[in-house]
């Protein structure tokens, strides 16, 4: 963290990137941190009866609802990416690849603010829901992995700036397959990581905080892969429902 900044990335650049990414994050978050703190404080939870009713819904119906919510959130991630300095300078092929491969990772990072660690519940469709609410999905392993990740990330107490820079760094992963110019992506990601390190250093965060954030990456990747596996299986069993999912959801996760 205390390494001098490389010559090709002066402090002014770092601060400019930080401002651009944080501004983009704040402009493109569905709920502000204050909104979520207020919602958590109000603590509206699904009653046992509401939970039972939701658990009795069909898998198709619950998949449909979740796909709708994820699709809505993806649009915010697209706008987040567009506002990151340098993203729109990438070729369109790489913009599409980074969004398809990384949008769910950004959502998983953002979701930790919607997680109530005291009650182990996640804000979903207006109230806080336990993992059991989603039983009808038939994806208990996926749902519990999402809740575990949210619990772990919420424990890190990321500031808006740290969350913005971390999610931008995840989105700008140069190791995504089929990238045309992975080196250009790598340079962009390196600057965002430097900005994150600088932000952590300036805020006096514990040295291991960055390591703890990076240690979540494998879990995020496995959740994204598990989501695709579950979607593939669901499509085999309910092809017509899968075909009726929102077009953007099918476009992002379809192939």
């Amino acid at each position: 963290l205390l390494e001098p900044l490389p010559d090709d990335c002066p402090l002014m650049d770092i601060e400019r990137i930080t401002q651009s990414v944080v501004k983009s994050h704040l402009e493109t978050s569905q709920y502000s941190s204050d909104d979520l703190k207020r919602l958590t404080y109000n603590g509206m939870q699904y009653s046992p009866e509401e939970t039972r009713n939701f658990q009795c819904e069909s898998a198709e119906s619950v998949w449909q609802q979740c796909a709708h919510h994820i699709t809505n959130s993806i649009q915010y991630v697209v706008e987040f990416a567009k506002r990151i300095t340098g993203f729109m300078d990438l070729c369109q092929n790489d913009q599409i690849i980074l969004l398809k491969a990384g949008c769910l990772e950004v959502l998983l990072i953002r979701m930790c603010r919607a997680f109530n660690a005291t009650t182990n519940t996640m804000f979903f469709d207006g109230k806080f829901a336990s993992a059991q609410l989603f039983k009808a999905l038939g994806c208990d392993d996926l749902v519990s992995a999402v809740f575990d990740l949210a619990k772990g990330l919420s424990r890190l107490q990321l500031t808006d700036e740290e969350m913005a820079l971390f999610s931008a760094a995840c989105l700008l992963s140069p190791d995504r397959p089929w990238l045309t110019d992975s080196q250009k992506v790598q340079k962009l990601q390196a600057k965002v990581y430097l900005a994150l390190q600088h932000s952590l250093h300036m805020s006096g965060a514990a040295d291991e905080k960055l390591d703890q954030m990076v240690s979540k990456l494998p879990m995020m990747k496995s959740i994204c892969n598990l989501h695709i596996d579950k979607l593939e299986f669901f499509r085999l069993v309910h092809p017509e429902t899968a075909y009726s999912f929102p077009p953007l959801y099918r476009e992002v996760f379809g192939s």
Partner: peptide
């Protein structure tokens, strides 16, 4: 382009935060 026309369109659109 055909396979990802929605993403292409979203990337081209200039959406203000208010519209978002």
């Amino acid at each position: 382009k055909e396979k990802h026309k929605i993403l292409h369109r979203l990337l081209q659109n200039s959406t203000s935060p208010v519209e978002l």
